[in-house]
Design a protein around this nucleic acid. Structure first.
Lengths: 157, 157
DNA sequence: AGTGAAAAACAATGGCG
DNA sequence: CGCCATTGTTTTTCACT
């Protein structure tokens, strides 16, 4: 376990929301000198607490209008077929997230595509032909209220 | 609609995966001068194609071991109660994503918390007491195969 | 639409209190 | 941990194609 104090949490909170902040700006925001921000930030990167920095893009601006959640149930639970399925979804660029779940659905996929036709193509031409796949059930996101994926840091102090 | 050419797409692709790349590094990677990267990047930011830069944190390192998908069905569809519910989930730090879905579940929430006790508290003390909420059904993510939320850019050229 | 070089801003270290 | 100074990078702007 990596020891994180209140300053670290505040740095993480600031950078999680806006990684374009300079050390100077973070410094002013949380009341710690810029050189300390620099050192702590490097430690947080090296320790893997900060995994990466990324640009968050606007799906609409890129013509990606459809977000769907696809529940997949596997049938014949052969190890080999399941492995193939996992490799496939991991490699698919349209798949934003893939989780195995408790409950009646084995996998939940978050998929983003240009239009419904593209979703249909993925389901019919990529997912369903997989040997391991028994059933696919998809729901379209009609409205996205929140999608920031900010981890809650407040309860960790 | 904002016009994006192949260079823009490559810049977006690079920054989506690693926003810590310098303009110089992006420049070498895609074959355009650093000054052009700078100019194009600013345009992409101003046009809102790049929404923000953010640090992606490691949930495990922060002690956030439980990811859950919670399906919520609303009962009495009074506008006011539904509005309260939406405001609440939007404000909850544990809620990473909230979408309204087609199908038999009204809302799907992606929730990240420290442990199952925290999840239980959220469901029983925050979600269920809401007047609008009729039913809550949660699934725990046992394994996350993929969680990068990278938008697919290849099919947009 | 693009390049390349100069100027301004910034990050990263080290020394000291 | 703050403060300060230094060094090396990086971004950004400008002149020119």
């Amino acid at each position: 376990m990596i020891a994180l104090d209140g300053f670290d949490m505040k740095i993480l909170g600031a950078l999680q929301e806006n990684a374009a902040l300079t050390n100077q700006e973070v410094s002013e925001r949380i009341g710690l000198s810029a050189s300390q921000i620099s050192r702590r930030r490097q430690k947080l990167e090296n320790d893997g607490v900060i995994r990466r920095y990324r640009a968050a893009l606007d799906p609409e601006a890129l013509g990606l209008t459809v977000t769907a959640f696809v529940g997949v149930t596997l049938g014949a639970h052969s190890r080999e077929n399941a492995r193939k399925f996992r490799n496939m979804v991991t490699a698919m660029p349209e798949v934003q997230e893939a989780h195995t779940l408790t409950g009646d659905v084995d996998y939940l996929l978050k998929i983003v595509v240009r239009d419904l036709k593209a979703l249909s193509r993925i389901i019919n031409d990529e997912l369903l032909p997989q040997e391991a796949v028994q059933n696919v059930r998809s729901s379209i996101a009609m409205e996205t209220l929140k999608d920031d994926n900010f981890l809650p840091l407040g309860d960790n102090l």
